[in-house]
Amino acid sequence: MARNNKLCDGRFNCKNCCQRAPNPRKEYFEEIKQEFGDISEWLNQRCGTEGVWRGNWAELAQATVMSLNVRGFGVADKFGWVRGLCIRERPNIAVFQETKCFVQKDAIGNSGGLLVVWDTNRFKVNSAVGGEFFISIRGIWDGFVHNTIVVNVYGPHNDRDKKKLWDSLDSLMDGIDKGWVVCGDFNEVQEHSDRLNCMFHESRARRFNELIVRNNLIEIPIVGRKFTRISDDGIKMSKLDRFRVTDSFINLWKDLSICALDREESDHCPLLLRDGIINYGPKPFKIFDEWLNKDGVDKIINEGWIKNVRESKKDCLFRDKLKNVKGELRGWSKREFGNLDDEINTLKILL
């Protein structure tokens, strides 16, 4: 069957314009199945050959979009982490970069593989377009009449391909006044402060900023972290992952926020765009000055700090050590002072 849609060019295996091809990932899934059991079944059932999953998560009142450079789905721990993120955060739409198994084009080296998934109860997709470095879906959120276009971007590293991507995004957005969400790993920064201990290219940043200005893309500040990508040794840091939206999208969702989640199995932080109250994560533990005057408190803190932690990344290692200290102090305070909340409530009743 001949292809008659220039925008599609066979990448989505559309029923109307593409010849249905055999699953190019069959051998890959068989290997994963032998290694990790039902992981391949879970992916294959939901993603088909086009790398798009139409899931069925519970209906939510908020609009939520999650973006993550996953650095490959072929590891059991990483797969479980991503699946846990989707279950816990319940995004309406989730976009992934560097899956290394769902590809718009053949992966080059360790790069490649864009994936878009969505909850069909909350977001109704009516069309999709694929480019060399992006996937775009157009649809309507449940309860709304206006279209929203979500673009999943994985930015190339060399200047020629960067220009190709920026030109493609210009063409894609030209003259279409809709609610746009452009997100992903752009592999580019806007200013010098977006990098730490790594090289900043002023000319590349200027071209990236010009793209943003031309298309009136607005950045929503990220809560929780300044940098979204940290090298494995914890030295190099960059703000490569972003959400950019248009005025039309902001008019649909008034209280937008972006939260950076913990980067447990990737060098990139998952980003969560949400409409509503910001989730700042677990509350920090409190320590009172009076505790420091108690005999043995330094021993309690030391016991928590020296506990074994299975993390290798320095920031995650530090986080988990603080969690251990928090746990030790919580138990010690209850033994030393009793349940202070109950005592406070009792005093309130007496007063």
Rank of each mutant, 00 (worst) to 15 (best):
L7F: 03
N13E: 03
R25E: 05
E27M: 12
F29N: 13
K33G: 11
W42P: 00
Q45D: 05
V52Y: 13
W53Q: 06
Q62G: 04
G74Y: 00
G80C: 02
G80N: 06
A94M: 14
S111D: 03
V116W: 10
V116Y: 04
V129F: 03
V129W: 03
E132A: 06
G139Y: 13
W141M: 11
F144I: 09
D161I: 00
L165P: 14
L165I: 05
L165S: 09
G179M: 10
G179I: 06
C183D: 01
G184C: 06
F186P: 12
F186E: 04
M199I: 08
M199L: 09
V213L: 06
L217Y: 01
I218N: 05
F227A: 08
I235V: 07
R242E: 00
V245S: 05
D247Q: 09
K254R: 07
A260W: 05
D262E: 11
C269D: 12
Y280T: 10
P282H: 15
F288P: 01
G296T: 10
N302D: 13
V309Q: 08
R310K: 04
S312H: 08
C316S: 11
L317M: 09
L317E: 02
L317C: 02
V325E: 05
R330F: 05
R330Y: 03
G338I: 03
D341N: 11
L347E: 15
